[in-house]
Lab assay of single mutants.
Amino acid sequence: MASDGVVVEIGKVTGSVGTTVEIPVYFRGVPSKGIANCDFVFRYDPNVLEIIGIDPGDIIVDPNPTKSFDTAIYPDRKIIVFLFAEDSGTGAYAITKDGVFAKIRATVKSSAPGYITFDEVGGFADNDLVEQKVSFIDGGVNVGNATPTKGATPTNTATPTK
């Protein structure tokens, strides 16, 4: 695992066909100046998982989280898009600690492993708008004895992609 920078880890949970599971997305290594904004994309298989919603985690402190935390689910493109932009203008609602960034709610549709993997990152910046190093650890849903650990090695991303 990367020793510096922010680590975004997609949790690994267990479920069975027809059940709804909650998959946490963790941030670790949050910089001392916090995270003022970030955007990134995960990939998944809508034939295996139906993403039914995404909720902000406990490290989102904006009293009205829909102003700073936004997501979009595109089953036709097989992606989930995340956007966080601190909304106070003063840094008061920045992410300042490690913990759960988001909770992905999904219904298991198939007995195949439900991988959720890193696809791309736009950027991560602290309260001074300084770009942060970030790496990703894939996860998803274990169905029966299947284990979604494909790509469990962190993917280092030093520069934003478009």
Rank of each mutant, 00 (worst) to 15 (best):
G5T: 05
D45M: 08
I54M: 03
D76P: 06
E131T: 05
T20V: 09
P46L: 06
F118I: 02
D128V: 05
I95L: 04
G114Y: 05
P160M: 07
T14E: 05
D62T: 15
I137V: 11
G99M: 05
I23V: 05
T107A: 09
T66W: 14
R77Y: 15
T149D: 09
R77W: 15
A125N: 01
P160W: 05
G57P: 11
P148M: 12
K78S: 11
P75R: 02
F40D: 06
V41T: 01
I10A: 04
F82I: 02
N37R: 01
T19N: 14
V6N: 11
S111W: 03
I79M: 12
A152V: 13
D128T: 07
P75Y: 13
G15N: 09
L49S: 02
V48N: 08
K67A: 11
K133V: 11
V81F: 01
I95N: 09
S88C: 06
E86N: 00
Y26K: 04
I51V: 06
S88T: 04
G15Y: 09
V17M: 15
K78N: 03
F27I: 04
D70S: 14
I23P: 08
G18R: 07
G151V: 14
P113Y: 15
P31H: 03
E86Y: 00
T107W: 06
K67N: 13
I73W: 04
P24G: 06
R77Q: 06
P148N: 03
D98A: 12
E22L: 05
A146Y: 09
D55P: 10
T149M: 06
D138G: 06
N145H: 13
P160A: 10
V7Y: 05
V13S: 12
E50T: 07
G91F: 05
N145G: 07
V100E: 12
I79P: 00
I95T: 09
R77L: 02
G29Q: 13
K97W: 15
S16T: 07
V8R: 00
I80N: 09
R43C: 04
P148D: 04
T161K: 12
Y44V: 05
K103T: 08
V81G: 02
A125H: 00
E120L: 01
T96L: 08
N47L: 05
D70K: 01
G144N: 13
V61M: 03
G89F: 03
P75D: 02
D126V: 01
V134R: 03
F136M: 07
T107L: 07
T66V: 14
S16C: 04
D39A: 01
N145D: 09
V134M: 02
P148T: 05
S3K: 07
A152G: 12
T14G: 06
S68D: 06
T71Y: 04
I52R: 07
P56N: 05
D128S: 08
F118M: 15
S16M: 15
P63E: 15
I23A: 09
G123C: 01
A94V: 05
T96A: 11
I60R: 15
V30E: 03
G53D: 06
Y44D: 05
D76R: 00
G123N: 00
P160F: 10
P46D: 03
D138T: 09
D98Y: 10
Y115A: 12
A94G: 13
V134T: 13
K103R: 10
G139N: 15
N127F: 02
Y93S: 13
D98K: 15
A125C: 06
G140S: 13
G11K: 05
S3F: 13
G89T: 03
Q132D: 01
E131C: 01
A94P: 02
I10L: 07
I52P: 06
A152K: 07
S16R: 13
E50N: 11
N156Y: 11
N156V: 10
G29N: 08
T155Q: 14
T14L: 09
G99W: 09
T117M: 13
P148H: 03
I79G: 02
T117E: 04
G144T: 13
V21T: 09
K109S: 08
I60Y: 15
R105G: 11
I104P: 06
I80C: 07
N142R: 14
S68K: 04
E131I: 01
F124I: 02
Y93Q: 14
K78Q: 02
I80Y: 10
D126N: 14
V7T: 08
A72T: 00
A94W: 00
A36Q: 01
G151K: 14
F101K: 04
F84Q: 03
P56R: 13
V130I: 10
G29C: 02
A125Y: 00
G140I: 14
T157L: 11
K67L: 08
F118Y: 05
L129I: 14
V48G: 04
V48T: 04
V30K: 08
A152M: 03
V30G: 05
C38Q: 01
T107Y: 10
F82K: 01
E9G: 11
T107F: 06
G34H: 04
V141D: 12
A102E: 04
D98C: 06
V141Y: 11
K103Y: 15
V48H: 04
Y93G: 14
D126H: 01
F136T: 03
N127W: 01
S16N: 14
L49T: 03
Y115D: 07
I73F: 09
T20Q: 03
E120W: 01
I51K: 08
G53E: 12
E120N: 03
L129H: 02
Q132T: 09
G53F: 06
A102L: 14
P46Q: 05
Y44A: 11
L83T: 00
D58S: 10
I73Q: 08
D4K: 04
V25N: 09
K67W: 15
T147P: 12
K97A: 11
V130S: 12
G91H: 03
F118K: 12
E50G: 08
I80V: 04
K109V: 11
P31N: 05
V61G: 06
K97P: 12
R105M: 03
N37H: 01
D87C: 15
R28L: 11
T14R: 09
K162E: 03
N127D: 06
F82W: 13
A94S: 05
I60K: 15
P31K: 15
T14Q: 11
L129W: 15
G144C: 15
G57S: 10
V81N: 00
